[in-house]
Amino acid sequence: MVQGGLQVLVKEGLRYRGREGQWTWLLHRLTGIGVFLFLALHIFDIFLMVFGEEVFNELIFLYHQPWARVGHIFLFFGLLFHAFNGIRVTIMDFWPSLWRYQRQGVWIQTVIFLAVFVPSAIAILMEILGS
């Protein structure tokens, strides 16, 4: 039983209205789960190297398909958000005097995130459309 865990997460998430701090907390959690699941899969696929060239190449071509490349855009989104949000949290943890600027921190982080994510996503999209 989930004991209403996920339901509580969504319901209370909508009700609580914690604004920037709460939304980034929720996204940090969700992107963390997403990156973890991809990482588990990725360790497994690299392990397939032990079975030799034929087996590995037969399966790795899946990552070259357009739908997998769209998945890569989600991976960029998740990993970049998690990374920049994690830096903000770490900075706040070590310098508590900055807490009063945490809302501004979220906006600075968002600008940096978009500056890295948007060009990356466009580059991947152009590659997909070009191939």
């Binding site: 190297m49 030799g52 060239e53 590995f56 190449n57 790795i60 990552y63 070259h64 490349r69 890569h72 991976l75 960029f76 990993l79 970049l80 990374a83 990356s120 580059a123 991947i124 590659e127 191939s131």
Partner: peptide, 19 residues
């Protein structure tokens, strides 16, 4: 991790990765 992500995607190229 970000180094790996950018290196494999934009220096190596995902579609070039094979055994």
């Amino acid at each position: 991790a970000l180094g790996h992500l950018f290196y494999m995607h934009f220096v190596v190229g995902v579609t070039n990765i094979d055994f």
